[in-house]
Design a binder for these strands. Structure first.
Lengths: 325, 325
DNA sequence: CTGTTAGCGCCTTCAG
DNA sequence: CTGAAGGCGCTAACAG
């Protein structure tokens, strides 16, 4: 059996008899043949590898999204190369450059706040499609997967309003990321919709870390006219708020109500249990990967954006009674 | 300037004048030269890529370890290719095969329970060194990083003993993984050291999931002679136990004491706050990566095992009084 | 179906 | 320091 036939058999091209094919496969197995991926990539001009870039892999959200994406990609025959930007623009562009040099076939990117120009020249002359998730570079990429940030924050504001709160503050996330910006905008819109003015100092921008939120919460509560309710833009921020409250002996939900975007899997077991916006992180990774696979196989001809739905999970931190479930 | 000179300049070989070198570098930048990693890999027979295989990326422990490893590897010029074995042996061997085909330069593996033989032929004829972490394949690999499981469990048992408990049960983890086995062995040893017999049914083997622990806890408490204290072999298992207790209205720590291996970052905010064995997950990934880098550069000539230290974090779930910090 | 051939992009001789 | 040449392992194209 010839070399070219073997190659065809192993890769399933051409029309071969089933007999020849299985003979080749057997022989390959017997010889324990391991095709070299780099050589194949060089020849095929395609690596079957996609780059995955996030601000922080150790965050439950990104970790879950990674898992979702990984599963979907693996099913489609792709491998994933991971890079962590550590919430730094410089590291993000470096990561993209590395990935481009690797000739990845596609990119999954939760940007930490790249400008369109910076993005363009980071991926210069690469034709790998890029799908954004969580946070977006406006006007770029082949598609995007975002949470329904607007709906989520609106649910939160309305719910607090239902509990009688009017003095509602926001622990906002990084304003270089669209997820942070959208949630803040949604907060403003929801407040305005109820003709509530946002007092000075009620919006506190944080990095996405509990430490940052802890400090911001203290600042918020040290004000002359402290809020009676706080909306945290992420799970980390909600935890930071919880820590601060514990430190100053503020008891939730009696003295202060707290709700958060992101429902951590232990939300039920916190004290008090956390009222939050839930969604399936795994799905956002999976959806992004699905879009990317479409884009890489050429089945995605125009920019597509999918919004992952969110829901309000009522628990005790907002003032709702214990028995919910 | 010649091609060969350029190559030498870009890769820092040979002896070139500083002038030539910088000229080449400038020119490369001006032309926006992106060297093809696959081509380079093919020629150099080295990919500067390492494979990272874990049972579940979305688990906080593995996610943190991944981050630690990634940072260390990136600093040394390596990229990481991630594979999730989903706690299935078959997927783990498939992942290893893929990685070997990719000609990765090294492997970081938290095995889900491979036999030495299975491991051997999964990585057949690959000379990529493998560093195990968290769970090990006995007698294989170039090194390993493990937690001090024995010390951890001993601390837990002794602490419960100090609170007067004698009827101490164990939610054991998967017994195909050394981390699960070591913790169980340590439990038996610690009990025996105090001449305590482990009653029938006090050891419950779980998968590493809260659901599994929830069921096991119910079984434990349904026994005729239920334990007065439970040791959970991981954070997931502790959460499952907490959930079960909530379901059956058992209040901690009065009716039952709970302690766990793994101190989750929200351990402080649970109700009750969780007494647990803490350690730095990030470090285990980093240590493993360091070992691997040594092994890949040939500086590691014999098997080396590092044990990451652990400490007891006293909180309320064991019966300790509130104010600890 | 067979064989042969040419190259993917890079690095490393080796002779100038 | 230059330039040419060979080859890493694989696949596609071509003529038998």
């Amino acid at each position: 059996v010839s070399l070219s036939t073997a190659s065809r058999a192993l890769n399933g091209r051409g029309e071969l008899s089933a007999a020849t094919r299985s003979a080749v496969v057997e022989a390959a197995a017997a010889l324990d043949f391991r095709p070299s991926v780099p050589a194949r990539s060089l020849r095929m001009r395609t690596t079957f590898t996609v780059g995955f870039v996030v601000p922080d892999v150790s965050s439950p959200f990104y970790a879950a999204a990674l898992q979702g994406a990984q599963q979907r990609l693996e099913a489609a025959g792709y491998r994933v190369m991971l890079m962590d930007s550590a919430q730094e623009v410089a590291r993000e562009t470096a990561a993209l450059a590395t990935l481009v040099n690797h000739r990845v076939d596609g990119l999954l990117l939760a940007t930490t706040g790249l400008s369109a120009e910076a993005f363009d020249d980071a991926i210069a002359r690469s034709n790998a499609p890029c799908i954004f998730f969580d946070s977006i570079v406006a006007g770029r990429g082949a598609g995007a997967v975002e949470l329904d940030n607007h709906m989520g924050v609106e649910l939160l504001v309305d719910h607090l309003l239902g509990h009688g709160h009017r003095r509602i503050a926001l622990l906002a996330g990084s304003q270089t990321e669209t997820s942070g910006v959208e949630r803040r905008d949604a907060y403003r819109a929801a407040m305005a919709a109820h003709e509530l003015k946002v007092p000075l100092g009620y919006e506190r921008v944080c990095r996405w870390s509990s430490e940052s939120a802890r400090a911001a919460t203290h600042a918020l509560l040290d004000q002359a006219d402290p809020p009676t309710a706080i909306i945290a833009s992420s799970a980390e921020l909600a935890l930071g708020c919880l820590i601060a409250c514990r430190e100053r002996g503020v008891t939730l939900p009696d003295e202060l109500a707290l709700v958060g975007f992101d429902d951590p899997y232990f939300g039920d077991l916190l004290e008090p249990s956390l009222t939050a916006i839930g969604y399936i992180a795994h799905d956002v990774g999976e959806a992004a990967a699905s879009l990317l696979v479409e884009a890489m196989t050429g089945d995605l001809d125009e920019f597509r954006c999918v919004r992952v739905p969110v829901e309000l999970v009522r628990r005790r931190s907002c003032g709702c009674p214990e028995a919910q479930r």
